[in-house]
């Protein structure tokens, strides 16, 4: 079915100024140009079709063709638990380390198994995102500084475990309430990348940014496996090539935005970087915090293989 007309709904959760949206639009432009409009891509930003879990459900039931978002969230779906490993704090040195480990041979069966169990296929990965750091009302340099810190974290078990391991008090607060909660002292700290800290004006209500770069993520195209298998090989290649290009654009834009955001933070508040920020001590404090999941959540030895790369 070489001349089949196809409409792709592509959903993501970021706003229209975010690199993810630019990447999605680039994907749309390339696919539509390459196929002379035979394939249409409609991009739905801003969780318009629902949050990430909701969109995953729609992919599974065939109501949505494509989701563009980080690989971390794959781990939050039943059957995708193994991917919680991608959200482990302080695990990856940099973007290349993370990308190469996910593209390594030892990860292939992990992807296959997750696809089987979740009903969601990872079509392609690639594209750097802003790594997470911390902001707080007081400086954090040593593991001991985490004690008693009321910190708003992402709702992820691996993050919670790290924060609890460091003696902090993780809290769950809606992002819309975060600014006011920091202002009024409901929480003392939060963890997000520099770009988010600037865009949400969180530096107005926090005094320190700790450049921990401690959780990384990679842009990922998710699709319905049956829908994917129905595509012709040529169309599959078109989508793959466009998604590669989209990922490269996202990496570029993220780097630009990160530089600009860190400049702003340097002017507005105190930025604490390594080596003043003792990341080695934090890492050793958390050593062994995830070993009991090795062989339960993900295949035994995976953690060691990633660390060894």
């Amino acid at each position: 079915t070489e001349d089949q007309e196809i409409t792709i709904k592509l959903g993501h959760i970021r706003d229209a100024a975010h690199p993810t949206h630019m990447g999605a639009l680039e994907f749309k432009r390339l696919v539509e140009a390459e196929t002379d409009g035979r394939i249409t891509v409609n991009v739905f930003p801003n969780s318009q079709l629902g949050g990430i879990q909701e969109m995953f459900t729609q992919i599974r039931s065939g109501d949505l063709e494509m989701v563009y978002g980080g690989i971390n969230t794959y781990g939050f779906t039943e059957g995708g638990d193994a991917f919680e490993i991608t959200a482990i704090p302080f695990l990856y040195r940099d973007y290349e380390h993370m990308l190469n480990s996910l593209k390594a041979d030892f990860f292939v069966p992990v992807f296959e198994d997750a696809e089987e169990r979740t009903g969601i296929k990872v079509m392609n990965i690639g594209g750097d995102t802003a790594p997470r750091g911390l902001t707080a009302s007081r400086p954090i340099r040593e593991p001991a500084d985490f004690r008693g810190l009321k910190i708003r974290t992402a709702a992820s078990e691996v993050v919670l475990r790290a924060m609890q391991g460091l003696g902090a008090l993780p809290q769950q607060i809606a992002f819309a309430d975060l600014y006011v909660s920091l202002k009024t002292g409901v929480v003392d700290a939060q963890e997000n990348g520099a770009i988010t800290v600037v865009n949400a004006s969180l530096y107005e209500v926090q005094d320190y940014y700790m450049k921990t770069d401690y959780i990384r993520d990679i842009e990922t195209f998710y699709v319905n496996p049956a829908w994917w298998d129905d595509l012709s090989a040529a169309d599959q290649k078109t989508l793959m090539d466009a998604s590669d290009a989209a990922g490269e654009l996202v990496t570029e834009l993220t780097a630009d935005q990160l530089d600009a955001a860190l400049d702003t933070l340097d002017q507005e508040i105190t930025v604490i970087r390594p080596p003043e920020l003792n990341l080695a001590a934090v890492r050793s404090e958390l050593e062994g915090a995830y070993e009991d999941w090795d062989g339960t959540k993900w295949p035994a030895g995976l953690l060691a293989k990633i660390r060894g790369m």
């Binding site: 809606a174 309430d177 009024t184 409901v186």
Partner: peptide, 9 residues
């Protein structure tokens, strides 16, 4: 509570 509070909405 809204302005100075130690609580969410």
């Amino acid at each position: 509570g809204v302005v100075f509070g130690f609580v969410t909405l």
